[in-house]
Simulated assay, not measured.
Amino acid sequence: MKIVSGLGSIDEYIPFVKAGADEFFCGYVPLEWSRKYGTIRPLNRREVMNYNVQVGSLEELKILKNMMECYGVPVKLTLNSLYYSGTQYEEIAQYVDQCMQIGFSTFIIADPALILYLRQQNIPCRIHLSGECAEINSIFLEHMDAFDIQRVIFHRKNSIADMHSCVVKCKGKIPEYEAFFLNELCHFTGAYCNSLHCDEFAHLCHVPYELGKYNADRGITGEQAVSEEEKIPIADEEDGYVTGATGCGLCALYDLADAGITHLKIVGRGNYTEYARKDIMQTKRALTIREEVKEHFGDKTDKGRAAYIERIRKELFTNGCMENCYYRGEKIR
């Protein structure tokens, strides 16, 4: 399994490579696009300039390509907007062609109409189906296979059983499958989120809220009631880093591998660089633990899974698990 990390700036590339990342994804939003379309008609749904989320210029992109040639770790460019206006498709095709001329061949795309347009224009880019597309089932994926999709990035609300079913039914058609693994356990599915990710407004997923049963007389009640403002994580390190503080799939790694997941997604664009680096190192350590457990237990899945989880909780959660689980208590068999 490969580790895929978000890249907020070109300065993060080398330290993240050294931490163990196998692949990166990042956005490139030309200043001309931002000036023309602003926040309301985004290229990537990350129209942020006040902190490192995107590559902001063509020259930076060229520097990043030189780093890729030196270190051999690829970078994929994201086009995560759910839809574009009709006039934007031609501009995006020119954008894709320009990036390909520099040396970026793979694009993560959320809009099926854009995928269709690029194929109709005979643009030979490699395409990964974005998790923002909300892949629902194998029927949808079989339909998208007609457009030569190299990888499916499952959205964050998929269960392991659902992902396993899709992998089995699409076997031999789509070669790679990616799942969310660390950070950003958002309560929204990306394809149904209408929040603006920009400098001007707080992200809708960061607005405090409570979960529970609603009672007309007493408001929200029951053990499920949780205030996000009151959840104060205990830091694992002196610098405040917490493993899996905002979303974690570490304990599910054993089953994700058995389900056919080939790539693990670490969401990190805009995160503190040191925190993101440690996320990569924790994931690398988890993969090593899984291999060691597999070597010891062989195909004894239940015993191996239990041993793996015990080691993860002991070795990676020094102050206890945050219980922000992507795949709580799931098994594929």
Rank of each mutant, 00 (worst) to 15 (best):
L118R: 06
P74Y: 09
F201L: 13
Y71W: 15
I108M: 06
H263N: 14
L61T: 05
C70P: 00
E310R: 12
D279Q: 07
Y327H: 06
S81L: 03
D299Q: 11
E23D: 09
G103W: 04
G190F: 02
C321P: 02
T87E: 15
E291R: 12
I289T: 04
G222M: 08
N52S: 12
Y89S: 06
V96A: 07
G298I: 05
T243G: 05
E184Q: 10
T301F: 09
N52A: 11
V293G: 05
E178D: 12
I280D: 07
E210S: 12
A191I: 01
E223T: 13
I153G: 00
H187V: 10
A245E: 15
I40W: 04
M100Y: 07
I174G: 04
G268Y: 06
G72I: 07
G219Q: 10
K2T: 00
G103T: 02
P42M: 05
R277S: 06
I115V: 15
F297E: 10
V267L: 09
L250S: 06
G298W: 10
R126A: 12
V152F: 08
G27E: 07
G72P: 04
D217C: 03
Q121F: 01
V267S: 06
E32Q: 10
T273R: 11
R35Y: 03
Q98W: 00
N50A: 10
I14M: 08
E176S: 11
F154K: 03
Q54Y: 05
N194F: 13
I312L: 08
N271Y: 15
K231D: 13
V75N: 05
V75I: 11
L204Y: 04
G249H: 03
C166A: 12
E176C: 08
K331A: 10
A134Y: 07
R126V: 13
N50M: 10
C248P: 03
T246W: 08
A216Q: 15
A21L: 03
N319S: 11
M144A: 11
P233W: 13
M100F: 08
A134W: 07
V96S: 08
F297P: 01
Y308V: 04
S81Q: 00
D111Y: 00
D236K: 06
